[in-house]
C-alpha cells in the first residue's frame, strides 16, 4: 500500500505497476470522471492569496461609520487597486471585509443569495444588521469546523433589531465581539488607539449600547476621526492604498456609500531625509 499522503491507500506503482484501466473496461469510465479521481487529495485553503487590509468602524450619535481601502494585495505586490470591500446588504446593513479577496467574493455571493432567497417569501420583515452578523458568524464558524475556513475578518455595521446602531466583528474562527470602535488586521494596532482615545474624550460608556450613550458624538466628528485613522493606516501599513470607501448608516438618513475617496493633507516632508524613499540618495 502506498503511504505517501497524496496517494494514501492505493497500490504502489513501483511494486504493482501502473493501474491498468482497461481491466473491466474502466478506462472509458475513468476518462469521463477524471475530475473525481484526481491525482491529489482535496486541499483546503491553507493561507490567503490576494488580500485586503484593515476595515475600521465606529459608532456615533444615531449610526455607524466604516471605512476600508480599495487595495487587493498579492503578497507584497499591489495587485488590484479597485476592490470594493464594503458590501451593502440593505439600507440598514453593511459588511466590511478584510482578508482573502476570493473568499470575500464568496461571502458577497452568499449575501446576494440570502437577499434573493428571502425575497421570494412575501415576508415583509427585513434582515437587520444583527441578523446578518449572526448568519455570517455561523457561515464562518461552520467552515472552520470543516477545517476549510473562509480566510476573512469582517465587521458588520448598521442598525440592529433593537433599532439601535450595531457594530460587531467576526473572523475566520467564528470569534465575535462588539465594541463602540472596531477594526480588523493592522488597524488593531494603528487605528484602534486613535478611535478609543476619541471615544474616551466623548465620555462613552462601552457597557451601554443604546444610542443615548453616543449622543455626544456627531456624525461629522466621527467621520473626521475615521479619515484620520485611514491616513495613519496609509502612512504606516505597507499593504494599504490612498484610495478608499467610507460608508455611513444612520437611523435618520439611511445608508450612504462614498467611493474613490483620497487621503488628504498628507505630509511626506520627512521622506526626503530618509534613505530608500526614492529621493535619489543611494546610501
Amino acid at each position: 500500500m502506498d503511504h505517501d499522503p497524496f496517494r494514501w491507500g492505493r497500490p504502489r506503482d513501483d511494486i504493482y505497476g501502473k493501474y491498468d484501466y482497461s481491466i473491466a473496461n474502466s478506462e472509458h469510465y475513468f476518462q469521463e470522471h477524471k475530475d473525481k479521481y484526481s491525482e491529489f487529495p482535496r486541499m483546503n485553503t491553507q493561507e490567503p492569496i490576494v488580500t485586503g487590509t484593515s476595515v475600521i468602524g465606529i459608532k456615533f450619535e444615531d449610526g455607524i461609520i466604516m471605512a476600508a481601502d480599495n487595495l487587493g494585495s498579492y503578497g507584497s505586490l499591489s495587485r488590484f487597486t479597485d476592490i470594493e470591500r464594503l458590501i451593502e446588504f440593505n439600507d440598514k446593513t453593511v459588511v466590511g471585509i478584510s482578508g482573502d479577496i476570493s473568499d470575500l467574493q464568496k461571502i458577497e455571493r452568499l449575501l446576494e443569495e440570502l437577499k434573493i432567497e428571502s425575497s421570494y417569501d412575501d415576508v415583509n420583515i427585513e434582515f437587520q444588521a444583527d441578523n446578518i452578523h449572526k448568519y455570517l458568524r455561523n457561515v464562518l464558524y461552520s467552515r472552520r469546523n470543516k477545517m476549510d475556513p473562509l480566510w476573512n475578518s469582517l465587521i458588520v455595521g448598521g442598525i440592529g433589531s433593537d433599532n439601535e446602531p450595531f457594530l460587531k466583528y467576526v473572523d475566520l474562527l467564528g470569534v465575535e465581539y462588539a465594541s463602540p470602535a472596531l477594526s480588523t488586521g493592522f488597524g488593531n494596532y494603528l487605528a484602534i488607539p486613535i478611535l478609543r482615545k476619541f471615544l474616551e474624550e466623548k465620555g462613552i460608556d462601552e457597557t451601554k449600547t443604546d444610542s443615548d450613550n453616543f449622543r455626544n458624538i456627531k456624525e461629522e466628528e466621527a467621520r473626521k476621526c475615521v479619515l484620520e485613522c485611514m491616513k495613519v493606516l496609509f502612512y504606516r501599513d505597507a499593504r494599504s492604498l490612498n484610495k478608499f470607501s467610507i460608508v455611513t448608516i444612520s437611523k435618520k438618513n439611511g445608508i450612504k456609500l462614498e467611493k474613490n475617496l483620497k487621503i488628504e493633507d498628507m505630509s511626506w516632508e520627512f521622506a526626503k531625509d530618509i534613505k530608500g524613499y526614492g529621493n535619489g540618495q543611494r546610501y
Binding site: D4, F6, N44, E47, M147, P149, L173
Partner: peptide, 23 residues
C-alpha cells in the same frame, strides 16, 4: 521513492496548517 509531497516535505520545514483555535 519521491513524490510531490515528499519533495515539499524535505525542502520546506514550515507548517502551514490552519489552526482552528485561539485564546
Amino acid at each position: 521513492m519521491s513524490s510531490d509531497y515528499s519533495n515539499i516535505k524535505d525542502s520546506a520545514p514550515i507548517e502551514h496548517r490552519f489552526n482552528p483555535y485561539s485564546d
